[in-house]
Design a protein around this nucleic acid. Structure first.
Lengths: 212, 212
DNA sequence: AGATCTATTCTTGTTGAACAATCCATGCTA
DNA sequence: TAGCATGGATTGTTCAACAAGAATAGATCT
């Protein structure tokens, strides 16, 4: 495996795991030492993460973990509505990607029963990635994946703990059922309602946390 | 202006201007010398362009200008349909971004009358960027902008010369009229038809050029 | 005290040289 | 001709150094 690509992956993992908290400054010297790479190599990885929206780069002030504010969250949900709903509404019947949705929902049920909420959160991301996979567009999946990862940082910032996702396992199930048994339009509408509720929950958490 | 950002802009300009042809290998040593920057600085810019999809990076084989094949083109138009149509269909009436659409169409008419087809092509991009601006989502605009830039490379690759855009000036006008005077649904349908025709034209050019 | 200016210090931005790792083309061998 | 060594070129990565901008602390003034 390529070193640089692996470095990006390592950084990404620690970002979405919350080890590098939103807003935290990422010192080049410190991180370079920690990952045992040179500053130059680290900076290349920073540029990649910057384009993906996971870190923020201000010239001469360095790189910090992205720390989405409320308008960022609103923006992210706008993207989700446009992409997820459009994909679902235009998805063909019996798309093989639906199997991925089903597996995610099923595993989420199991994980929820076992109180493994971290896993539920991960599977929630898998589900919505699977939804977008119905588009058969690798570019759409890439862009969407970046946005979803950024949303993960928003969750971490206001400590929307994963167990709050509990009610949404059922909602994903509803979306899947609507796709399988009803019309695409119905499925998209169900998903749209889901996104509205989800967005409200996150913004509520922001308000409680007193964050912008 | 930041040096690095300026370097990315310079490279982007030359890419979409066609000076660096699709598929062309970008030698680090040669480009570093040409832009009078070090290899390390250039490599940072390469990572940014790579994430944007404008260049292709294969480990140990270097960077080359993205050279979209037919499946890339199909993928790009999938993205366009999902994003542009969704945005237009859900756009509020009297969105200020419509002014940007109007300006682009008007200027395109003028440029077409003057046979300035390069400018027509640029204004066409402006129009569709303006469409997406109706979403009020900076992330959607960024992602969409990257995809449009990549499509520009596809045009360059098969030499879809800009004068072929001529009939599409009128199509953009129709989309705008539909948005202003008819329903969002109607506007989205008009745009969908436009995209279908546009995609066919590009794929036809690929077939003629014998490209994959 | 509070505000403002200044000097020092720290971090990032960028460079050049160096070497390792990998790929590519050439020519050799069977 | 197919496969295989070999040498040359390019990329991957590091390091040390310095320039440039930002942040901090201290001094000065009101």
């Amino acid at each position: 495996m390529n070193h640089e690509s692996s470095l990006v992956n390592q950084l990404t993992d620690r970002l979405i795991a919350g080890e590098l908290r939103p807003g935290a400054r990422l010192s080049e010297a410190a991180l370079a030492k920690e990952f045992d790479v040179s500053r130059n190599t680290l900076r290349e990885a920073f540029r990649v993460l910057g384009e993906q929206g996971l870190v923020n780069h201000i010239p001469h002030r360095g790189v910090s973990v992205a720390s989405p504010n409320t308008s960022d969250v609103i923006d992210i949900y706008r993207v989700r509505r446009h992409i997820e709903c459009s994909v679902l509404e235009n998805a063909p019947k019996n798309h093989p990607g639906a199997e991925g949705m089903r597996r995610a929902v099923e595993a989420a049920h199991t994980a929820a029963a076992a109180d493994d909420w971290l896993r539920v959160g991960t599977l929630n991301m898998s589900f919505h990635n699977a939804v977008v996979s119905l588009s058969d567009s690798s570019r759409l999946m890439r862009s969407f994946g970046n946005v979803l990862a950024e949303l993960r940082l928003a969750f971490l910032k206001v400590e929307v703990l994963d167990f709050l996702h509990a009610p949404f396992v059922e909602r994903n199930q509803e979306v899947l059922d609507a796709y399988l048994n009803e019309s695409p339009r119905e499925a998209a509408a169900t998903l749209g309602a889901y996104l509205g509720d989800s967005e409200r929950q996150v913004l509520g958490a922001y308000a409680r946390a007193g964050q912008a």
